[in-house]
Amino acid sequence: MNSELRNLLDRMTVKETVTNSDQSQSWHAHREAERLVDNTYIEELDVLLSVSKSKDERRAAYFILGAIGANTGAVRCAEILLKRVDFEKDKYVLSSLLDSFSKIDKPADISLDAIFRLLDEPRWLVRHSAIRSLRNTNSPAAEDYILAHLLKTDSPFDVTYCHSTLNQIGSLRSIPQISKSVGSRKRDVKISAEAAIRSIQMRNDKSSNEL
């Protein structure tokens, strides 16, 4: 493995006891990772993930893939994260993977079936990350699945996360379902619904003006 990548992973996963982020080697390493644009790391991380027994190391690798994918648009990062979804059983590691996946632009032809299955995941940490992970996608199916989940869930947290995702990927057909939450007594649900509707309408107006 590239020595610079190995060094970064070691710093991201170092065990330390500190009182603030300025003193944390790991915190600074994560901020460094957020700026990465080196695509040569991608395949090395893929190999690492296939053999690593360390949860902390895999979480760090997922974080780096998410950063590189977001910064460079490399679809390969999304592909690697997707194929790892069914392998990760630990809820914290899986949540980290999904959070990294959410940052990457996904083309319409990439299969999101592994993510869709997690929308019914009983562990709320994983389920919420799965909802968020469908941001940055052009897949009409993603909107369909989010709307279906929004229709059946009774969790205000799930509803809020669905609104947040539809805020970014939703079309006009999402508005009737989202509008049902505008009168909610729960502040986050109401505010997220109003914001999503505004965002969808602005996106549609912009698209119409460009025609």
Rank of each mutant, 00 (worst) to 15 (best):
N2W: 03
E4C: 01
L5D: 00
R6W: 00
N7D: 08
L8N: 02
D10P: 00
M12H: 01
M12I: 01
T13F: 02
E16R: 10
T17Y: 09
S21N: 12
S26Q: 10
W27L: 05
R31Y: 01
E32M: 04
E32F: 01
A33Y: 06
E34F: 01
L36H: 01
L36Y: 01
D38Y: 03
D38L: 05
N39Y: 04
N39D: 04
N39H: 03
L45S: 05
L45A: 08
D46S: 11
L48P: 00
L49N: 09
S50W: 02
S50I: 00
V51R: 13
V51E: 09
S52T: 12
S54A: 15
K55V: 02
L65Q: 04
A67V: 02
I68Q: 13
G69F: 06
A70N: 07
N71L: 11
N71V: 03
T72C: 06
T72Y: 09
G73L: 10
R76C: 09
C77Y: 12
A78S: 15
E79W: 02
I80V: 08
L81F: 06
L82F: 07
L82H: 10
R84P: 00
V85L: 13
F87C: 07
F87G: 12
E88C: 03
K91E: 11
Y92E: 14
L94Y: 03
L98T: 04
S100C: 10
S100D: 02
S100W: 08
S102L: 07
S102H: 06
I104E: 05
K106P: 00
K106A: 09
D109P: 00
S111T: 11
D113Q: 14
I115V: 15
I115F: 05
L118N: 04
R123G: 00
R123I: 04
L125M: 11
V126R: 14
R127T: 11
R127N: 11
H128S: 12
S129F: 01
R132E: 10
S133L: 11
R135Y: 01
S139E: 05
P140W: 15
A142S: 09
A142W: 03
E143V: 10
I146F: 05
L150F: 12
L150C: 07
K152M: 09
T153K: 04
D154W: 05
P156V: 04
P156L: 12
F157Y: 05
F157Q: 11
D158I: 14
V159K: 15
T160S: 15
Y161S: 13
Y161T: 03
C162I: 06
H163F: 13
H163Q: 11
H163W: 07
S164D: 15
N167G: 02
I169M: 10
G170D: 04
S171C: 08
S174V: 06
Q177W: 08
I178S: 06
I178N: 07
S179Y: 07
S179R: 15
S179W: 08
K180A: 14
S181M: 11
V182G: 02
G183I: 08
R187C: 04
D188G: 09
K190S: 13
I191C: 06
I191A: 14
A193E: 05
A193G: 03
E194S: 02
A196W: 02
I197S: 11
I197Q: 11
R198D: 13
S199K: 10
I200L: 13
I200E: 13
I200A: 13
M202D: 13
R203Q: 14
R203Y: 03
D205W: 15
D205M: 15
S207C: 04
S208G: 04
E210P: 00
